[in-house]
């Protein structure tokens, strides 16, 4: 059933339906937001500082409860699902700040990434070998402390860890912030590859140009509202959109 639903004409995996969310009282950070995220595509979310981009991810992950609206994943509402169950549901997350356990070994970080299937030792070993095969740069450090990795290597370890239990959706919050430029393009390459493997990738990014470059579909948020959306191709070529982006890049200093 699920497979059929995914390969149907509309491959929408996640949808936000008129979502409102607030950190305090009724000061809404997200206002009546309707978004959809499809399997096999990178959906970019861009916008000036304070637009609510990261809040979209936090709300989706259950860290912040919507005050109104619904978030639907694969046909069922995600509301009320605790954050720690998102991995079980099939939603992986690579946050902006480090989510590694720096004093544990690279392998132990991966072992904890297999938490939902931890009782199946053979599956854990297979999954770890698989991701280390996909991220060969991590293999030599397998038994070293994660804290000894460089910024770029740490980010790859986080991505590898998120892939261990084969998520249907993977959320990235500023994946190339705070890492060396030589790794940044590699991170974007990986993001594109994940989408080609059928994962619904959501990419929140300050770096507008590479984000639009790697995305299939783009949303622009401003003050918690959707101000523009469309195929990334249009965003790459449309003068009006480029001007708009230029305007708020100036405002946010981005």
């Amino acid at each position: 059933m699920n497979a059929l639903a995914q390969i149907g004409p509309d491959s929408t995996l996640i949808s936000f339906r008129n979502v409102y969310a607030a950190y305090f009282g009724d000061i809404h950070v997200l206002k009546n937001l309707t978004l959809s995220f499809r399997s096999g595509e990178v959906t970019g979310i861009i916008g000036p500082n304070g637009a609510g981009k990261s809040t979209v991810l936090k709300t989706l992950l259950g860290f912040l409860k919507p005050s109104a609206g619904d978030i639907v994943f694969d046909g069922r509402s995600l509301l009320g699902t605790p954050s720690h169950d998102m991995v079980h549901v099939g939603v992986g997350y690579v946050p902006q700040n480090s989510s590694l356990f720096l004093d544990l070994s690279v392998e132990d970080n991966l072992i904890l990434g297999c938490w939902p299937v931890r009782r199946d030792g053979a599956r854990v070993r297979r999954a770890i070998d698989r991701v280390l095969g996909d991220f060969p740069m991590l293999a030599p450090f397998r038994h070293g402390r994660a804290g000894e990795l460089s910024g770029g290597q740490r980010r790859f370890l986080e991505i590898a860890r998120a892939l261990l239990i084969e998520p249907k959706a993977l959320l990235f919050d500023e994946p190339t912030a705070m890492i060396a430029p030589k790794y940044a393009s590699e991170v974007y390459d990986h993001i594109a590859r994940l989408a080609r493997q059928g994962i619904a990738v959501i990419l929140v990014d300050q770096n507008v140009r590479p984000c639009i470059q790697v995305s299939d579909y783009v949303y622009i948020l401003e003050l918690g509202q959707k101000t523009m959306e469309g195929d990334a191709d249009a965003f790459r070529s449309d003068e009006r959109i480029r001007a708009e982006i230029g305007r708020w890049l100036e405002v946010s200093g981005g």
Partner: peptide
Amino acid sequence: KALRAAVMNRDALRIVGVD
């Protein structure tokens, strides 16, 4: 390992699925 990891990064434990 999850117990030792908790002192290093509690939020990250939730991300990997630990209650």
